[in-house]
Design a protein around this nucleic acid. Structure first.
Lengths: 191, 191
DNA sequence: CCCGGAAGCGTACGAACGTACACTCCTGTC
DNA sequence: GACAGGAGTGTACGTTCGTACGCTTCCGGG
């Protein structure tokens, strides 16, 4: 066809289709052709807009982390005090492990890439950094770090468990990790 | 060649080569041919020993979970009391997140498959079940479950973090989650 | 000694892949 | 109104893939 001039939506549609396809079929089954078909763009557009599969994947996962970080913002940003923060964290765990199969799968795919290729780790670093910023509004840095890891583990185990644990257990784990009162109250960490 | 009769090592070599290849290059890059080359077996052996890629992958990851469960056994089996169990858990987290890039990568690949295909979840279920059995020797079931999730999160975050946290932080998180003294003493478990 | 059948292999085929590149179409300029 | 050049596309090429299947090799029973 050769529609004539620049169409910035093409690029977005390709990236969205890439994430959809990865979520549904896995990285092993993505190909330029399949993405093109799903996005409704000609094959030639793939190499025109992206230098190769790698760049495409990195950019697609960049969009994804933007989205996930937004989910974190949404949940944790509104919390006014520690208790609200704890509730917000529990909500987050349950939303991520329940509602959205999609986000869970994409998260795993990203971690898999990050575990092997440092280039993808920049995305996960930024994600972790952003989520810790939220948590540090309510907890000391060490606690935030532990809580961040706990969120990860609870989400994953809940999503994969045969009988997912209930909210009470999630909240108890969060309460335990954030029960710093008996410990050093001040400073940047755990003395 | 057609060596004549049954050779049970072939199968094992293929499975081992499959895991090696996945660890090094990712599921996206595995193929019958590549595995065959790496295992030093002819291409025909692939379809002879395994009905298809799916069966091959499932069996290979079965071997992997056997291995990982053995690592858990090794660390947690020897612990005699709660404090030793806490130390053992910390050792486990640090070994998994440090020494073996391979185990980390394979774990992620398995979780990725499990997140999408229930068939692979049986492997992760068994893994979680076995690790909880160990933990429940020292902690009540709820705590064991929380601790199991914490192990997961700490391991992953430590492996992917720009600046991995130290052992002290790992131990503190473990201590916090297992600090059950102040809570309900009864149930199936907390001595 | 021989021969039936199980165990295992080599190869060939069609489908799908990534990529390069000649090409068409539009738009802004004069 | 023509034309330069950038934007976007269609297609063709060489590679790699999974799988099917006819073939070879050897073992054990007769």
């Amino acid at each position: 066809m050769a529609t004539g001039h620049t169409d910035p939506q093409r690029r977005e549609r390709i990236l969205a289709a890439t994430l959809d396809l990865i979520a549904e079929e896995g990285i092993a089954r993505v190909s330029h052709r399949r993405i093109a078909t799903r996005a409704g763009v000609p094959l030639g557009s793939m190499t025109y807009h992206f230098s190769g599969m790698d760049q495409l994947l990195r950019e697609a996962f960049g969009r994804f982390t933007d989205h996930i970080v937004a989910v974190f913002d949404e949940h944790l940003g509104a919390a006014a005090d520690r208790d609200q923060a704890r509730e917000a964290v529990a909500d987050l765990v349950h939303e991520l492990s329940e509602d959205s199969q999609r986000d869970l799968v994409l998260t795993q795919e990203l971690y898999t890439l990050a575990a092997r290729q440092p280039a993808y780790r920049e995305l996960t670093h930024e994600w972790m950094r952003r989520s810790r910023v939220h948590l540090e509004k309510h907890f000391d840095p060490d606690t935030a770090r532990q809580l961040d890891a706990l969120i990860e583990g609870l989400t994953l185990h809940r999503a994969l468990a045969r009988e997912p644990h209930g909210r009470a257990l999630t909240l108890e784990a969060i309460a335990r990790v954030t029960a710093t009162e008996r410990r050093a109250p001040r400073g940047s960490g755990t003395p």
